[in-house]
Design a protein around this nucleic acid. Structure first.
Length: 227
DNA sequence: AGCCAGGCTACCG
DNA sequence: CGGTAGCATGGC
């Protein structure tokens, strides 16, 4: 076994939970072991929309919001852009923070259109109001298939509990640490993208079980598996 | 009833 | 600068 704790955690989680197939789509849901998503601009936009809606909320709530839009025949950029603001807010209500998120979505649409189909840079994304580090990385990784690892609150909890990162480690430090650890074990961008997508999803799946309520990590089996 | 959710911005000291 | 209140609904 490679002397690489991060990669060991990935392998342990993968064998425990199996491939996750993130990002889920409103039609099609999860797609484990199928990696040619998103297929077109509409799906890229749907992922971006989902990323904004899922900030600090559960994905089941996001599905409700997306389903509301779908029912209105409005799960697309043009419809949302032309929709009365109150209708948009009402549609995304289940995901919480609907006032903020409606504004964020409209701001993102302006940005998305300005791209004219090209892939945005990370710093461009960070300049859009409502897009922070995690959302930028989620958009790049899951909408654009770029090799950017997503660090979330769960990732930090799991790695702190495993004694791998410090409590006050920054987002950037954790991201780079994980990316460098994984790069040592694999070859090629394509493989990185798939692995990053799965790893983040696996961390979330695992953390939902063992890192949602305090004290964190009760029952977590990772500490026993890593060297 | 109270805590948590696949965060981010704005403002505080 | 780092730290934190506020944002809001839904599930358990």
């Amino acid at each position: 076994m490679a002397e690489n704790k991060i990669f060991q955690i990935y392998e342990t989680l993968l064998s425990s939970y199996g491939a996750q197939g993130w990002w889920p789509f409103i039609e099609g849901g999860y797609h484990p072991n199928i990696y040619d998503y998103p297929k077109n601009e509409a799906q890229i936009f749907e992922v971006c929309l989902g990323v904004i809606l899922t900030q600090n909320t559960t994905f089941t709530s996001v599905v409700k919001s997306l389903t509301n839009l779908k029912k209105m025949n409005s799960l697309n950029l043009k419809a949302i852009k032309n929709m009365p603001l109150d209708e948009l807010k009402s549609a995304i209500k289940p995901s919480g923070y609907f006032n903020q998120k409606a504004t964020y979505i409209l701001e993102f649409i302006e940005f998305f259109e300005s791209l004219q189909g090209r892939v945005p840079s990370r710093s461009e994304l960070l300049h859009v109001k409502g897009i922070g580090h995690e959302s930028a990385d989620s958009i790049l990784l899951y909408a654009y298939n770029q090799a950017e690892f997503v660090v979330d609150a769960y990732t930090k909890r799991v790695l702190i509990h495993a004694g791998i990162v410090d409590e006050k480690a920054s987002y950037h430090e954790i991201k780079k640490f994980i990316e460098e650890a994984i790069q040592k074990e694999i070859n090629g961008i394509q493989e990185s993208v798939i692995l990053y997508q799965e790893f983040h999803a696996l961390i979330v799946a695992h953390a939902k079980l063992f890192y949602s309520k305090k004290p964190y990590g009760v029952g977590c089996f990772l500490a026993n598996k890593i060297v």
